[in-house]
């Protein structure tokens, strides 16, 4: 599903964010990426939906080599990947319902199917009663659930979450984790960059630890392994 080989990434300003990354992730896995600030976690995830292109090496996702992907093909490639950020990235003027529906309008889903699927994911993240609210009227945890609902609404094979609980209180974080595990149980690969020692040590999954743009540890059912 994901195969990175000898991946190097140097930003235009000269910062080396990835320094030879080799990794394989199978379909259906749940993987944490941990490491100090600036270790390259976000850059790692950005490779996977072609937000950034590696300076060297190959990145293959869903049998697509993103280094040779033409820019016209990028939107279509991204439709099979859901992305969730710490800052939610919701469209501020659209309602909860419209934000989620947007991901389906883009793929020209029929209005009938859009309604059905949006209501179904809203139910799944427990926000059916807030469908008509705009993001500013929601709590952080609720906004994050909308972002997850949007990321999962077209059944992507891969869901990338970059610090999805970064802005949330512990209780809300567990709620988000429960939803992510549920999505994972349906077969979606989940890649989650996090600083939460508690989550990583409690909900045991594969852990990839990064340091200075390199993978320094990769264990199944691993520990967080850093002092917070």
């Amino acid at each position: 599903m994901i195969k990175m080989q000898e991946v190097y990434m140097t930003y235009p300003n000269g910062v080396v964010a990835l320094n030879g990354v080799d990794v394989t992730i199978e379909q259906g896995e749940f993987v944490y990426i941990v490491g100090h600030s600036g270790a390259g976690k976000s850059t790692f995830t950005k490779m996977l939906f072609r937000e950034e292109v590696p300076t060297k090496g190959s990145v293959v996702v869903n049998n697509t080599d993103i280094t040779t992907l033409k820019w016209k093909e990028v939107p279509y490639f991204r439709r099979n990947i859901g992305v969730v950020y710490q800052d939610f990235r919701l469209l501020p003027k659209l309602t909860v319902y419209e934000n989620i529906a947007f991901a389906l309008e883009v793929i020209e889903e029929s209005p009938k199917n859009i309604r059905k699927r949006v209501m179904s994911v809203l139910d799944q993240v427990g926000l059916k009663n807030k469908a008509r609210f705009i993001p500013d009227e929601l709590s952080g945890g609720e906004q994050q659930r909308v972002a997850i609902a949007r990321a999962m609404v077209n059944h992507p094979s891969l869901l990338i979450a970059d610090e999805p609980t970064g802005n949330l209180d512990p209780e809300t974080s567990w709620e988000i984790m429960r939803i992510l595990e549920e999505i994972n149980a349906s077969g979606t690969t989940i890649l989650m960059a996090t600083h939460s020692k508690e989550i990583v040590n409690t909900v045991k999954k594969r852990v990839i630890a990064m340091e200075d743009g390199m993978i320094v540890r990769d264990e199944h059912r691993g520990e967080y392994g850093y002092e917070v």
Partner: peptide, 15 residues
Amino acid sequence: KEIGIMKLVGATNNF
């Protein structure tokens, strides 16, 4: 920023 978000969910330029 909104355009960036649209692209994130796979909107084409024409869309």
